[in-house]
Each structure stands twice: as C-alpha cells, then as structure tokens.
Design a protein around this nucleic acid. Sequence first.
DNA 1: TACAGTGTATTATGTAAGTAATACAGTAAT
DNA 2: ATTACTGTATTACTTACATAATACACTGTA
Lengths: 126, 126
Amino acid sequence: MLLEIDHHSGVPIYRQVVDQIRQLIISGELSEGCQLESVRDLSARLKVNPMTISKAYSLLESENLLERRRGVGLFIAGLPREQTDNIKNELFQAIAEKTAIMAVQIGLTDKQVLEIIGEKLRELRK
Amino acid sequence: MLLEIDHHSGVPIYRQVVDQIRQLIISGELSEGCQLESVRDLSARLKVNPMTISKAYSLLESENLLERRRGVGLFIAGLPREQTDNIKNELFQAIAEKTAIMAVQIGLTDKQVLEIIGEKLRELRK
DNA sequence: TACAGTGTATTATGTAAGTAATACAGTAAT
DNA sequence: ATTACTGTATTACTTACATAATACACTGTA
C-alpha cells in the first residue's frame, strides 16, 4: 500500500492518511476484504506514533469504509456495491453543487461552465 | 453591508467575515472604491473584538481584494477588471479541476458529469 | 494643536488540535 | 499457558488557533 506523508505540509498526518486511504478504497485499488497494513507496521514505516494511525483508521471506520478486529487486523469493509455507490454519489453531488454555486456567483453562463469542466475531463483522460 | 455571524457554528468569526465579504466583492455587490464599515463599527455591531475584524480585513487585503488606509478607512481595491476576472477565473478553474478529478476517480462518464453539473445549475437558476 | 475619527502592534488567555507514552485488551497458534 | 502478533483506552504534552485587552499610530479637520 503506497502512502506518502509530507511532514512539512501543515496538513495533519492522520488526515493525510485518511484522505489517501479513502481515495484508494473509492478508486477500487483496495477492495473488499483486503487486509490493511497493521497499525504498528504503518506507524513504523511513517515514523509516527501508533495512536496517530489508529486515529486515522477510526475515522475511516466511522465512515463505514473499513472494519477493525481487535487482535486480528483491519479490513476493507464488505459493503454492498449499492452503498459504496451511494458514498461516491454523495461525495460527487456535494462538490458538483459547490462548483455550480461558484459558477453562478462569478457570472459564468451554463455553456461556459460545461465547457470548462469538459476541458478538465479531457485533460485528465488523455 | 449585511453580514451574519453565527457564534455557534464552530467556524471562526474572522473566517465567516472573510468569506462573506469576499463573496460580496466577487458578486459585485461591493464595488471598486466602496468604503467598508469601519473596524470599530463592525466589531461593535457583531459584538466582537476589533482585532478580530482587523484580522479578517488583513486577510482580504492579502488577497488584494481591499486596501487599508490608516486613519482613513478600508476600501474595495481598485483592481483593473482584468485582474478581478483573473481571480474569479483562478477560483473556478481550481474547483473545476477538483470536480473533474473526483468524477474520474469514481468512474463517471463525461456525459454523466455534465448532466449532474447542468442539473445543479438549473436548480440554482430557477 | 487638539480632537475625533480611522486602523494596528503587542501581549495575554482560553481552548482545541495533533501527537506521543504508556499500559492495557483481544486473537491465534504453539 | 506462552508467545507474538493484532488494535485501543487513557493520559499528558506541545503547539497552534481564535479571541480579547490594552496601548499605540496615522489622518483630516476645526
């Protein structure tokens, strides 16, 4: 599992871990049932206190993205696809709305908005 | 100048002020040369320490959205329209890119993305 | 110059965030 | 039971953030 922590970015370590793992789960690189790197291994590798990692994992658990089993390890939650789709959908709806609100506020036409988004998508896919 | 502060939202007061005034400027409700409510007046009205307001204004100044003149007051910066447009543009490009990245990560098609954004825009405009 | 308005630098205080030390608790295999 | 892994609750320390009190500095005008 590839995680990169920037100790000088100002972004809290636990948050960097949460965001990166959530990303890996949402994008499917970590799939249902996968065992995650143990709290101690990961904390050793990132040169960080185990509790910091445990805290990150706790947050992911509270999002229902993973399950913790004391004495055994951490696993990607076996969510029905329906539910993961809901999570993805909510995430996207939220950012889409922010985008639309800003577009209206700065006075872009619908056409302009769609063109800009379309262009960004094209850049990402090439 | 209509500002609403929620003391119980958890969002820092100075940030609420910054965000709301930035919004007013970007949307054009406060235009070039306008004098802003004085630090003391605004702080009295919001029942807050003057330094809290001063801090908020400082941040807006560092974004080049307003100018401070000691002993005189605060004014919306006289930016050439070109520059305000640039600021708006940068703001939007940034969020548009985030939107596109998330869309790709969760596996939406371009068509789906544009439909969702279009729908959000329609809701905002009706 | 005096004054009455501006904004501000400095300093202090209360609170929360982030991280870490330590000791504890569950599981599985031997 | 012992061992060697798992994860975790409690507690404490440090730092940063948000706000406030106070005293100061600039500007324009009578």
